[in-house]
Design a protein around this nucleic acid. Sequence first.
DNA 1: TCGTCACTTTACCAACTGGTAAAAAAATTC
DNA 2: GAATTTTTTTACCAGTTGGTAAAGTGACGA
Lengths: 211, 211
Amino acid sequence: MKHDTATSDTPDRKPSRIQLENRKRILDAALGLFSSQGFRGTTLDQIADACGMHKPNLIYYFESKEAIHIALLNSLMAEWLSPLEAMDPDGDPLEEMLRYIRRKMEMSREFPRESRLFANEIVQGAPRMLPHLESTLKPLFDKQCGIVNRWMHEGKLTQMHPAHLIFSIWAVTQHYADFEAQIAVLLPGDTKRARGAETFVEDMFRKLLTP
Amino acid sequence: MKHDTATSDTPDRKPSRIQLENRKRILDAALGLFSSQGFRGTTLDQIADACGMHKPNLIYYFESKEAIHIALLNSLMAEWLSPLEAMDPDGDPLEEMLRYIRRKMEMSREFPRESRLFANEIVQGAPRMLPHLESTLKPLFDKQCGIVNRWMHEGKLTQMHPAHLIFSIWAVTQHYADFEAQIAVLLPGDTKRARGAETFVEDMFRKLLTP
DNA sequence: TCGTCACTTTACCAACTGGTAAAAAAATTC
DNA sequence: GAATTTTTTTACCAGTTGGTAAAGTGACGA
């Protein structure tokens, strides 16, 4: 008979305050480590150290190391996609696109760990995220591509392939988080860098999208 | 007394044909595995299997697993940077830029493993590549930024921050290799995809760079 | 043909790593 | 405040992994 734990799948009562808090501590520590060392490069002991717990305690709150990774990806996915979701079909097309781009740059600056976590996962073939991409991202992506496409046909934006446009926005904005190590070498002088990047990217896409 | 091996640092005679061949086999297998699973996610046994050798044989040719990784990064770096190096200060500015972009797209399509190997390394903070970035990439990058900058001041290209321009070229072109798993989900229909991406990216930067 | 050197294979190991068992300690409930 | 449940800690284990020791095999020149 299996011991009853916080990860039991029997119809649990609502998780206690301690459970919610400790789960959050674990996920936060795991985010830092997984994003900078990858899944395989991170050990349970490292996660435990980083959040001041002991290894078996992690397994008390999550079934396995992989369960931590999956919980992390799932819990961050919605937030990560919220800017795309927020694109308003009734807004001004150019302003909506630039607002989206600005929000993506802001997230790249404010949440580089999240960006790198997803980058790590996708570069390695998205082994634990493919179903999620199919079921969650794909429908949203198709919908927003449709909106952008309509804007283009109405002459409000330069005509181009909407999917590739969105790819290029993702590529450029996330590049600043994902490849920060390289950028820091090539463009020292931390202070102005973020602002320089943000005005560059906004100007670039404004010029590109203005019909 | 240490055994004399192919990795000995005593003044070796030139490596035999077998050595060259086996080193290449190992590096090729390692490229496939490191690029799709990361350094920590790849085991020596996997590499050995992939090239039909036994584990201790790898250590005969390379001091350690890390030495394989470093040798791989070093041996690919020059090739990876050759398109940037090939930018001709005396050529037509717009054509030179577009040629560079086309070559980067081509490499993303033909050498996705290399792209992902570097992506993995840099996302994780470039632990084994930072010195190389400082010593090799940085000077080249600064030089080519200077060229681009001159072109802009001569009115041959749209004025913008040359470093960020190059970042955006890297971001967009390498995105197609590094995030292929995601793109395959969002834009199925393998056949036209590569061509679509290439015309999109070229058109995008042509519009952006044309003064 | 013999000896030397380059290369390969087998057997092995110590450290690490994900995970478990179970006792101890807190917290909560009655 | 005793009983019970939840959470933490200690001790441990089996499988994996990077790497070594050393014997074995083959090639090649004298």
